[in-house]
């Protein structure tokens, strides 16, 4: 951030100069000023009082450590940038050659994009998304379908009970009577 700032506003222009038009018209500056001011104050507006899930104002804690730490780190960062880039000098290059790997990593944004792509495309899509989708289609849905199919095939296997022969029907009938009597007399007495 601050490398950008110093390079643009503090360093001498390199070879070619743009036609410089001052800081621009008020129509451009005003929104910037408003946004800038608001971004400074916005943190102090107790939003939790206005947007709450319950209708009652929520409570807000200001955790000091939590607020100071980022500010401190920010200040340190600004200081380092000031040292390196405020005036054009060799310090930055020197440090860069000394910390070759780190600088390169930082230059490539610590390979965040590559890692991100790797994690999403290779890891999440293939290792989580695909199995989840497969599991859903085959195991969960398959189980639900299997419930239905088993019922249907079970009913198919029962079909022989209904043979169309009256003598068999009579047999089932008498078996039913005897069976029920036995259960009724010996089990449920």
């Amino acid at each position: 951030m601050f490398r950008l700032y110093y390079n643009i506003f503090w360093n001498k222009q390199d070879a070619h100069l743009h036609d410089f038009h001052g800081e621009g018209p008020i129509s451009m500056k005003l929104p910037l000023i408003i946004l800038g001011t608001l971004s400074i104050v916005v943190g102090f507006i107790p939003f939790a009082h206005y947007i709450t899930p319950t209708g009652k104002p929520g409570e807000m804690h200001l955790d000091l450590m939590f607020s100071i730490a980022p500010v401190l780190i920010g200040v340190v960062g600004i200081a380092v940038a000031t040292m390196f880039y405020k005036s054009q000098n060799e310090k930055a290059d020197k440090v860069a050659t000394q910390l070759n790997g780190l600088y390169k990593a930082a230059y490539r944004k610590f390979y965040i994009d590559e890692v991100y792509l790797f994690i999403t495309k290779k890891v999440i899509f293939n290792l989580i998304g695909r199995p989840a989708a497969w599991f859903d289609r085959n195991i969960v849905d398959g189980f639900m379908n299997a419930l239905g199919n088993t019922t249907v095939s079970f009913s198919a296997s029962l079909k022989d009970m209904q043979s169309g022969k009256v003598q068999e029907y009579a047999l089932y009938f008498i078996a039913g009577v005897i069976g029920l009597s036995l259960i009724g007399i010996y089990l449920w007495m």
Binding site: Q162, G164, V166, E168, Y169, Y172, F173, G176
Partner: peptide
């Protein structure tokens, strides 16, 4: 059931 077998026919 099991006295129903005549029904369907």
């Amino acid at each position: 059931v099991p006295f129903h077998l005549w029904t369907a026919d």
